[in-house]
């Protein structure tokens, strides 16, 4: 039943993450990639929303996109798992559908 939600927009430019968090239900997974990775960083304005959502949703961030933007795992909010491309594929396979918050 679980949905994999993907967010590839910066939370400071678009409401993709905000909407995703509003509609995603308990047990769903959220993968942050491309400009979406900024939502995974500690100390941002959206950190409280992400931390609060971590109690009901599983969060993942795509490592290559994170490193491309100059950030390493130490800067990530605890509880968010870093995955590589193969991990992204595994997630998409495990979940029975994908909702892309474009």
């Amino acid at each position: 039943m679980a949905i994999l939600h993907t967010v590839n927009k910066s939370p400071f430019e678009r409401n993709a993450l905000e909407s995703c968090l509003r509609f995603a239900t308990e047990g769903a997974s959220v993968l942050l990639f491309e400009d979406g990775v900024y939502a995974a960083l500690k100390g941002t304005r959206v950190e409280p929303q992400v931390v609060s959502a971590l109690s009901r949703l599983r969060f993942y961030v795509l490592g290559p996109d994170l490193r491309a933007r100059g950030f390493s795992e130490e800067r990530i909010i605890p509880g968010i798992k870093v995955v590589d491309y193969a991990g992204f594929v595994d997630l998409a396979v495990e979940c029975d559908k994908v909702q892309a918050w474009l």
Binding site: M1, I3, A100, L102
Partner: peptide, 18 residues
């Protein structure tokens, strides 16, 4: 409401996003 919307997403087999 958003809760119902989320439930409807869960019930779908496929979601096409635009």
């Amino acid at each position: 409401d958003s809760e119902r919307a989320g439930a409807l997403m869960n019930q779908s087999d496929v979601i096409f996003s635009f």
